[in-house]
Design a protein around this nucleic acid. Structure first.
Lengths: 217, 217, 217, 217
DNA sequence: CATGAATGAGCTTTCATTCAT
DNA sequence: CATGAATGAAAGCTCATTCAT
């Protein structure tokens, strides 16, 4: 019994250490990549020790997998928190687009860590046991809005949720992911607020035009 | 003067060494990133020596800049080689989309090296003197097709080439760049030919619907 | 007093833990040496924890000393279990030789742990309090056989038990200890049964020829 | 041509670096074993840098293999330098025994490095390309003396060089290799000069008695 | 009696880079 | 134009050990 009274304090501290390492790893991996981010820098940022990374995550790769799972978890969590207007499919789809575009803009670490993972050909996500959990609900938001619109005859029946989800993701993700080369290429700073707003409305427009029933008569 | 007479042979060999190092660096940087790709591996792949990298490119960063410029040069070159059907704007835009989507698919090194550059916030492209050369013609293909369509009243006048270029790039690039995480996420292999074809036609459809004049009366 | 009543159960469990750690340490030290064998591997093999090693043996060196004492104890125990034919000195000496040669063959951990101890110049055995206990009876077996032979006038009087003991040990130990380099060196596998038998009979022959009274007239 | 005049100085220095690292490795490996001896300690002792070990020997294991080959080379060289009295087989065999016993005594690094190699089950010697070179001449000395004695009818015809070589090696090697545990065990310092001399004469006596034709009539 | 958490020093190895010829 | 030699910093990881329950 004495053990049980003591353990919580122990575990709380342990959990704090683990969490700060995980947090630090996301920060470091997202700014330097898997290879560029060193365990010592992560440990330092977490105000812990290299050794603890091996204690909690086995090795650097294990930490990267944990970081990957964590950013996916947050992504899903954020998506699950969105509630759409179920009466108006256009409003609903617009809200969905806004969510994705803004999520990528506000979470650059999601974008860069995923790029790292893709550089290594997805070898870590395939090792993750939690990955399958995340795969399901992801398209949910788009699917919801699309189904609604199809029912009401506003959206074309043949449109696939998967394609629209990819379209939205692509346009939101790419804009954030490649902002530096694009800015140099196009000669304008893509991260300027005005620029962002313009892009967001363009994406909304493009998506709606893509899924909406053409008005013929 | 005597030097000049036997320079050519020298220069040819030197150029070959330089070129093979550049080629090898694109290969290595694209598969391991800037940090993950080591100079010794590049030298080995080029069947040359580390020292030569410093001789020709100053340092690793200089080599990366050169690699970056090279893949951009090839990208522009490929784009310049495309000739559009100037009579039919829809055909022309379709051809442009096909070019971009296929270029990203067939040149994964372009995609991964650009991702590396964006991870480092575009610090190398901004150092490049040749970068400005590449910035101009890039949107040309899209602009050409779009202008044509606008003239003929097929495409909406308010559509901007920049936005459409970004849309096409995003959809082509993202599909290639994130194929590994997406495949895990969606539960299907995105690099399967059928999958590719489906996506390509979806992108064409989406782009056309986005730029086309709605048929009202 | 209450403590004493439930001690036995506690002690039995404790003894089991201690014993399994000791056993595991012999296994690990004998295959990896003192430096190469890590406490974590020992703890793992014993299905216990690193911490227990410090609890029971103070530190890694203490564990090594205990392992050393244990293999010596077993060696002495095995020797004490041998009973010689007291009527026939040649048979007795032959039996003694067989015991030693076979003991080294069947207990490679004895050989390798002793090699480790000698690498460190006997610094642990000199710290052992039990070491003196083991020193006495060791030569007993050889001494017994030799004395018998001397009494009967079969063995030369000037032969010293110590020298014959060393001779037997050397030939048995070296064959086992250096089997890998010797096998590479001689081009034949010394651990083959036939090879072993040949060597054993050669050792017996050499020892007997060394101690036996020359037949002069 | 200019290159050729410069190279020798280069190579001489390089050879010196390589040699000092090799020398230092023998020293360190022989006193601490393969695992216990660290590359940094070796580099320090050689007044060079860790990095140079990897430059010249690939890795730690490569250095160990080189060290192993070197001590074997020296052993063979020393043996090849011995010239036996070809007229007197007893003198010749005595000289051979003396050589081996003294070689092990005077070259403890040979003994300890070989012990290390045997701890690792000969995994390095089997990787060595030079190993086969050393295997041949090794028994030569014993074989020479033995053949001579057999010709003259002094030594028994059925005695095998291999067995006698092993016998001599075993008695010389074991005495040196296990001197620390034996000293503790027997209660006397085996490395005392008097002790050594006694053992040497005992070995000579034992070997001669083993191979000599019994005087029957 | 046992165990999770933490620690700091040390390990082997690889890195990008420079020197001398 | 090219190459062997050298360098110092830093990488990922494992080590034996101690602390606090």
């Amino acid at each position: 019994m004495t053990q049980k009274t003591h353990r919580p304090a122990h575990q709380a501290r342990a959990q704090a250490t683990r969490q700060s390492l995980l947090e630090a790893s996301i920060e470091v991996f997202s700014t330097h990549g898997l290879h560029g981010g060193s365990v010592s820098r992560i440990a330092e940022l977490a105000q812990s020790h290299d050794r603890m990374i091996y204690y909690y995550f086995g090795n650097k790769e294990g930490l990267f997998i944990a970081a990957l799972e964590e950013i996916y978890r947050r992504y899903n969590e954020a998506e699950a928190a969105v509630t759409l207007d179920t009466s108006n499919p256009i409003k609903a789809l617009t809200a969905a687009v806004e969510f994705f575009v803004r999520y990528f803009r506000d979470h650059p670490e999601f974008v860069t860590v995923l790029n790292s993972e893709n550089l290594y050909r997805g070898k870590h996500i395939s090792q993750s046991l939690l990955a399958s959990q995340f795969s399901k609900p992801a398209i949910g938001l788009v699917d919801q809005a699309l189904s609604l619109g199809k029912q009401q005859g506003v959206f074309r029946a043949e449109t696939q949720s998967r394609d629209v989800y990819l379209m939205i993701s692509a346009m939101g993700y790419f804009y954030q992911s490649n902002q530096y080369t694009l800015s140099a290429f196009l000669g304008e700073a893509l991260n300027a607020p005005k620029c962002y707003e313009h892009w967001e409305s363009f994406v909304i427009d493009a998506v709606l035009r893509t899924v909406t029933q053409s008005k013929k008569h």
